[in-house]
Amino acid sequence: MTTEELQNLHVTKSVDARGTACPGPLLEAKKAIGTIQAGDIMEVLSADEGTKVDIPKWCTKQGHEYLGTLEESGYYRIFLRKK
């Protein structure tokens, strides 16, 4: 997706994991994914460099669709669609 498309996504669930280091953001994503419906879009906010690698790989393994990452000031917004 383009930056503009990512910015305009309708996000059902925003997970703010900027206060935690690895493995916090991945576990926060894991817990939050159970609270949304298939097809819903979730974003994970993380200041941890490893998360932007971990979440796409996790999506591949779990079957969720990784949509892209936006780099903000000091953190990342990582988007995915639940399978």
Binding site: C22, P23, L26, L27, A29, K30, W58, K61, Q62
Partner: peptide, 11 residues
Amino acid sequence: GVILSGAAADD
């Protein structure tokens, strides 16, 4: 503990 967390994320 960190490794267990990763394993948990992957079920």
